[in-house]
Amino acid sequence: MNLSGLIRQSWAGLRVLLLFTVILGVAYPLAVTGVSQLAFGDQADGSLVSHDGEVVGSSLIGQPFDGEQWFHPRPSVAGDGYDTLASGGSNLGPESTQLLATVEERRAAVAEENGVDPADVPPDAVTASGSGLDPHISPAYADIQVNRVARARGLDPAEVQRLVDEHTQGRTLGFLGGERVNVLELNLALEDLGSS
């Protein structure tokens, strides 16, 4: 153990580090980007979705939807809600009185807005996701919104329910992850229904 040994090794380390920075920090990400853009361009660019020729966001990223005519996403604590520049969850613990109050408030609001019994409000409707950008809601949360959305749009509830069913995705491969409805895709389908 000696200082000159450490300096000599550090100097060798710097040379190794600089060359690895070129390989791993520049060449590798460029190569991955090149191949990705050629082979999977849509995904690499963020799985963008358009409406009337305008990009309206990514099918993977949740968006805020206010108003009776839309299916609503989960509560979000990313910024003021679905702010992609401030992803994250509430980080409030299981005994937090603040979280308890928030959850009860949300349940009352969701129940009133959709005209359902508070006991029928599903868990995902009253809790914020970890990312704050969850694009999905549970099929149960979509179901309780059907009548409200149909009324606001002057549509037959059965038709809206059919759309929800079409957009309900089961577990991946039948057993991976959760059952879900993509809110943006469902609302896009609603818009298309209205305009046809």
């Binding site: 409030l92 299981p94 959850v103 009860e104 868990p123 996701s129 809601i137 959760g178």
Partner: peptide, 21 residues
């Protein structure tokens, strides 16, 4: 999902994504 909030909610979904249950 033991605990005050998870019990009130009906599941331990705070901070979890729907796609990952």
């Amino acid at each position: 999902h033991a605990g005050t909030v998870p019990q009130a909610v009906g599941a331990a979904t705070e901070g979890k994504e729907v796609r990952f249950d």
